[in-house]
């Protein structure tokens, strides 16, 4: 028997001399071979969709009009592709990122990075203070939506930890008319950000 198992081996021609039990056994072997083949690759597939690349469905109006432009006239949600490899590194203002929601650990959220660590943000209404410094290891995210009641972003939950970020949204795959890469240069920038040095000095840390 070879070291690697080949589930798609050629099925032998049925000969009339074979009994029903023999035929059944051969079919069962083929079936379980195929099942075992897919099951054995499941961890690799899981790694890929959790750490490398996946396609996410964006629900809700928070990124309108950029994503889900027709959120109030259509039930179709946009699909985006997410690059997840080394997600927290090299973040820049204007990137659209997917992160695990701080308020619901089983859900993802897609928002745009407005400010990085060290910046000062002039906040929007639901936030209790008029301005806030983004702390070490955090980013300030906001939806493109202008109505603050329709986006659950840093103005409600505060700065988001970079460790929560699972990936950068690379582009739109659906609907077709919007399909293509997301270009950060298309973002006009925010006038509510006082840009800091980019990184806060090393956070003194021991456990």
């Amino acid at each position: 028997m070879p070291l690697h198992f080949r589930p798609f081996r050629p099925i032998p021609k049925l000969r009339p001399t074979r009994t029903i039990a023999q035929r059944f056994r051969a079919d069962a072997r083929t079936t379980f071979g195929i099942l075992f083949f897919f099951a054995s690759w499941f961890p690799a597939w899981s790694f890929f969709t959790n750490n490398v690349f996946c396609i996410m469905s964006v629900t809700g109006p928070s990124m309108a009009p950029f994503l889900n432009t027709d959120y109030n006239s259509s039930l179709v949600s946009d699909r985006v592709w997410v690059n997840m490899w080394r997600a927290g590194e090299g973040l820049k203002r204007g990137m659209v990122v997917a992160y695990r929601s701080p308020t619901n650990p089983e859900r993802f959220a897609v928002k745009r990075i407005i400010a990085l660590e060290g910046d000062t943000v002039i906040t929007k209404p639901p936030h209790p203070f008029t301005q806030e410094d983004v702390p070490f290891g955090h980013v300030w995210v906001e939806g493109d939506q202008l109505d603050g009641n329709k986006t659950m972003d840093s103005n409600r939950v505060g700065p988001v930890s970079k460790s929560l970020i699972v990936g950068r949204v690379g582009g739109v795959v659906w609907p077709w008319r919007k399909a293509g890469r997301i270009r950060r240069e298309d973002w006009k920038g925010s006038d509510r950000v006082l840009v800091g040095k980019g990184t806060v000095e090393e956070y003194e840390f021991f456990h």
Partner: peptide, 15 residues
């Protein structure tokens, strides 16, 4: 085939 099997078991371990 041997290499593929080793890679597959690495993924299984990681999972």
């Amino acid at each position: 085939g041997d290499v593929i099997v080793v890679v597959k078991y690495c993924f299984i371990f990681h999972f």
